[in-house]
């Protein structure tokens, strides 16, 4: 096979992509996320649904992504960003004067990824929801 200029370019591009592949290892592994969830739930069963995550479908700037979590009847909500170097974002604990178990904040996202919210209900059960957010520019700095 004759190696044309185009082929050579493609090859180097391919090599570059392969070389950059280990990069996502910077992101948290599923084990990290499971460990974070387990630390929050104490190993209890978590049922799907029941937590609402409001976030833009496409976030232009990963440095400040507005996110709202809401879970009626929850005493605390754990918010995780599965694709960040450290998955933990924040844990909201609602006190006796809290009117609704919901909170809004702004978070950093390193790239397109899933947000995970785990809510601890007043009766001790746990609920979990996921939502994916596309990020155009990552927000974890150089």
């Amino acid at each position: 096979m004759k190696l044309t200029r185009r082929d050579a370019l493609l090859l180097t591009a391919g090599a570059a992509i392969t070389a950059s592949l280990p990069l996502p290892a910077l992101a948290a592994t599923p084990e990290d996320i499971d460990a974070d969830i387990a630390a929050f739930t104490g190993g209890a069963d978590v049922k799907e649904g029941g937590v609402e995550i409001t976030a833009p479908e496409i976030a232009e700037n990963g440095n400040t992504v507005p996110v709202e979590v809401s879970a009626p009847g929850a005493t605390s909500i754990l918010l995780l960003a599965a694709g960040n170097p450290n998955p933990g974002v924040a844990t909201f604990n609602f006190g006796p004067l809290s009117a609704a178990s919901e909170a809004k904040t702004r978070i950093r996202l390193a790239g397109t990824q899933d947000l995970i919210a785990v809510a601890k209900m007043a009766d001790g059960s746990f609920a979990m929801s996921k939502r994916s957010v596309k990020v155009t520019i990552g927000g974890c700095g150089g």
């Binding site: 400040t64 992504v65 450290n86 924040a90 844990t91 609602f94 006190g95 919901e102 904040t105 702004r106």
Partner: peptide, 22 residues
């Protein structure tokens, strides 16, 4: 009396903003 109590990780943006109901 506590209204909210948030454990914050580095993934919260600069100039952290929190909104909640009481």
């Amino acid at each position: 009396q506590e209204v909210v109590n948030v454990d914050v990780d580095p993934a919260v943006s600069a100039n952290p903003y929190f909104q909640f109901d009481m």
